[in-house]
Nucleic acid binder design. Sequence first.
DNA 1: GCCACCATGTAATCGGTTACATGATTAA
DNA 2: TTAATCATGTAACCGATTACATGGTGGC
Lengths: 185, 185
Amino acid sequence: MSTHLTPTARVILGMLQLGAKTGYEIKHAVEVSTRFFWGASYGQIYPELRRLAQAGLLAASEAPRGGVRRTEYHLTAEGERSLHEWLTADDAGIFEMRDELLLRLFFADLLSSEDARAVASRMRERSEWILERFRELEPDARDGFTEGGGERFPHLALQYGIGLMEWIARWATETERALDEDRLS
Amino acid sequence: MSTHLTPTARVILGMLQLGAKTGYEIKHAVEVSTRFFWGASYGQIYPELRRLAQAGLLAASEAPRGGVRRTEYHLTAEGERSLHEWLTADDAGIFEMRDELLLRLFFADLLSSEDARAVASRMRERSEWILERFRELEPDARDGFTEGGGERFPHLALQYGIGLMEWIARWATETERALDEDRLS
DNA sequence: GCCACCATGTAATCGGTTACATGATTAA
DNA sequence: TTAATCATGTAACCGATTACATGGTGGC
């Protein structure tokens, strides 16, 4: 019986296994790590936590702090099996991207060369901005982003993000240059 | 009065301006060009075409071919204005990506080193596969993908896609190697 | 005769975001 | 006392995909 995990269930199970306990902590972990390639909102997280508990993949326990209601979750044996199965699945998984600036560039034959160049510039600026956000996360990621610590793959994923954004910034810069030469000849 | 364009309206207006005429042709153009960074399905295209016509951005005309019902669309002056406004907008636009293999890699501390390495391999295989699809599109893109022809930016966007996938494939290969060294020491 | 392609559409469902509401605790 | 942070949740809405239905045309 291989329980199919919804997209949000995948991050939830993973984050719980890496040490997050509450919905709030899951959300936080996502924001400081996977959000650029796998997001999750409260509107998804809380209902999904209950569904997963209902399905027997999670166990819930009330763990108030002072007067604050608080529910901690952890994986059941079934949940662990399910997570492991997904992590080792033999498929290419979801791969999607949506890039509005690239779409504008695709249509840039409809623009003046100045306006076309401006699209490339915005692409470079955007990746530089994201790059800064990534570098801010680096120190945390290096020592493992959960208190449990010791993880190395989150750091590797960040290195991927940094490398990717550097590549895009470089490409955009070269494209700006190419469009310039074009304009001046 | 700046009409806000829905995501799908953006490709529709652009594709129409590049020479597509019917919903079917728009869908086809998307499939052989932008689908990796901006998709659109019939379920979105047809209703949106009618909405855009209603809003005055498009003009529709019945253009049957033999006994086949067929509706051709083209931009009105208002539609052109709207498209141009979007293309030159001063913002970073939508930038999203969702990568399930990267998420698995992020969680790979939960896996054996063999299984972790397998995730990296799948990443490489996936980008190589996409790369092949891109290269198949290259000849068409070089001469402009619409019969009107003469566009250069669609080709540039394809070059971007190719470069990006090559970068990912390279990164994955290096990561495989790094994980190997690790395992053998 | 059949298959590939041209062509248009809809209903069900999904996965997700946004905006809102509520309230306790802690540190400045 | 006030702001930031911890914590949980829901309702409305959105954008999109999937699966289905229908039918003509052209070439082998």
